[in-house]
Amino acid sequence: MRRIIITLVLALAAIGCAAAIASAVGGGTSITRARLERSLPATFANQYVQQAALLGHTGITPASLQAKAMCEKGGPGMPDKGPGSDWICLVGWQDPNVPMPPEGYGKFELTVHSNDCYTAGGPSKLVGFQTINDTQGRTVNNPVFEFDGCFDPNGDDQPTGNSYPSVLQVTSTVLSADVSGRTGVQVSCGAGANGCAGVMTISDGTRSLGSVHYDLQEQATPTLSLPQAVPVDAQELTFTFAPSTGIAPPKPTTIPVQR
């Protein structure tokens, strides 16, 4: 028994030493932004071609899609490397059957495992839901809704330079003004390069209520305070965006006021 304990202690000590050496020497992970940005579009394109075949869309090849991805992990300021379920990849591609939104990409959510394999979930509004109907009317699994892939841990790690802008959206559905007429509007700045910046102009339909400069990090949902009090007779407010960075709603957004 003593012999077994001594052996186990020695084995654990050896593993500990190896861990110390490994973390001192390398410590680097093979899971990087650049490798995902190369692997995901290739895997996506292969799956997308299968979906196109099921849907009866012709003329779609992996090359014709020209898929590109920009990936990041865990929000702004977090290093874009290592395993985790908080990877986001913005993927743009060209398919005449499915027009891209104005920003030119869809958001994929990835769980990346330490064994250099990942599971990617596609944006339903662009790739459809879990099941689709094929050309013969059968309900079949949608290969792009969720798919697995693996990448080469020794693959090219040079930055791809792929970049997509963040999208600013207004998330408030109603504005609650306090007794003095103060209120704010909640916006969300989605994942993308460099966040969202620009000028938001406010009016109540007839009067201008000033403007607000905004400069937001990506993946944030701040509330922008309005510079002037809301007039007592205002029923709704209209917000117009002039973005300098990122994408903003192209048309003015109107939100009702509640007191």
Binding site: A19, G27, I31
Partner: peptide
């Protein structure tokens, strides 16, 4: 141990 991300160097 290999599935832990923090000690990726050890995985190899």
């Amino acid at each position: 141990v290999g599935s832990l991300g923090s000690i990726a160097g050890l995985r190899a």
